[in-house]
Design a protein around this nucleic acid. Structure first.
Lengths: 247, 247
DNA sequence: CATTCCTCTACTGTATACATTGTTCGCTAC
DNA sequence: GTAGCGAACAATGTATACAGTAGAGGAATG
């Protein structure tokens, strides 16, 4: 049992330029648990009890309870029986189901982004395409920080998609955001190798170029290609490592 | 201010064959508020305070708070400022955004349902097609109950889709379920006329037939047609009545 | 030795009390 | 008369107390 008695930093509204920590304890607990589940600190199947998490995080059960309810709604925590909560599991079938939804949503997002992108949006995608193009073996030298840099680039791409969608696709954007959360977990489960990352960068570049050119169908096709390859890569990792978390 | 002092029926585990009410007060509050928002009892823009709802529903603030958190996550309640919750509004742009997502998801669902439907599933869709085919002007005689009957038929169709998807599309099914919730609100906002309902029944029948025949592309096309017409109909209602709920 | 029943523990669900903060209304000063 | 400030109020956010129940563990019996 992990007993790193790390308390949550209390929000200090008086000091500093708007303290980093979120305003409410419930928000901080939510952010903490979500991050721990996504990055694997809390492994799938781990039981979560309110009292235990409350003590660990230095708050009462109330904000923990609120955070857990949101995590259940998000699908990161699941109920087994009427009395126990577990960090939700991810098995290969879940990955397939996730990509099934992701493909649908991302293709639509790419199509709309290519259609709606403003002049500034297109410039942004041009710049992103260049950055994806500059991803080389050299770029991926260090195992941890540069991978982080690559995923930061992907995050920038995602943000650019959101911007290009504008305020007109709130429902689509919300659904995609949910998918991204689960996708981050899957990434941890099946770490991409360098070769895959280089290919993925090229694929992302193709999508960015298509959107920058305002070519919806090319954007869709490039997205489909990317997601197909991504799923294939993940599946090969999962089967080879036979990594299946509990049912 | 509505002061119908109707308390929530307390769960009575001792009496009857597993009492109707959900097990926890929080669940009951959630179900009640959700239903009231969807059916328009709580109109868009209505402020929701914990204490007020707690008193109205005969429970303490705790379960109300939990229910409100879920409703915010579902998008039925939105925060205005740091201190006030409102029943979320629906304007015509939201309807377009909702259908944008709905089209994407329902097309994919129709495709997969047509692909995966078992023998029993197809029989069910055959039966549904027949029932949609039997929807006539006669069927829609009474304004309230028969409309309800029609929407029950649509609900059965939705359930059949879920069944045909099987357990393999959990993420897609969850996303669709969320869309259906918001769609129910939109239906209340723009009530279909009899003519539209008859057309919609025919469109549904075409989708059901395509799935029963195991023809994915026809199912997709029929779905697209149905959703396009549905949106067009709703939009004409919204613009003609100039029904816009607050920003 | 396995199985069933009983008890005890521990966790959830709900209520309530308390602290904190945003908001509003009224007062005062200009 | 208007604008700015202050105090009371109201609603949220958190902690804690209490009741009910599921689940585990042990004892007794087949």
């Amino acid at each position: 049992m992990v007993d790193t008695s790390e308390r949550l930093q209390r929000a200090t509204p008086g000091a500093g330029p708007r303290a980093r920590a979120s305003r409410s304890a419930a928000d901080r607990v939510l952010a903490t648990l979500r991050a721990e589940i996504v990055d694997g600190t809390l492994t799938p199947g781990t039981p979560l009890t309110e009292a235990q998490q409350a003590e660990r995080l230095g708050v009462s059960r109330t904000p923990v309870r609120e955070a857990l309810a949101r995590l259940i709604a998000d699908g990161l925590v699941e109920e087994r029986g009427p009395r126990t909560l577990l960090v939700s599991s991810i098995n290969p079938d879940d990955v397939v189901a996730l990509f099934e939804l992701r493909t649908t949503l991302d293709e639509q997002a790419a199509r709309l982004a290519a259609r709606r992108a403003t002049h500034d949006d297109r410039a942004e995608f041009r710049a992103l395409a260049a950055r994806f193009g500059s991803v080389t073996v050299e770029f991926l030298r260090d195992d941890d920080t540069s991978r982080h840099g690559y995923y930061a680039l992907v995050a920038a791409f995602d943000a650019a998609i959101d911007t290009a969608l504008g305020g007109r696709s709130t429902y689509l954007a919300a659904a995609i955001e949910s998918v991204r959360l689960h996708l981050a977990r899957v990434r941890r489960l099946a770490r991409d190798d360098d070769a895959r990352l280089l290919t993925a960068a090229a694929e992302h570049r193709a999508i960015a170029d298509a959107i920058a050119d305002g070519d919806p169908e090319r954007a869709v096709a490039a997205t489909r290609l990317h997601l197909h390859n991504a799923l294939t890569s993940i599946q090969s990792h999962l089967t080879s490592h036979d990594r299946q978390e509990n049912p």
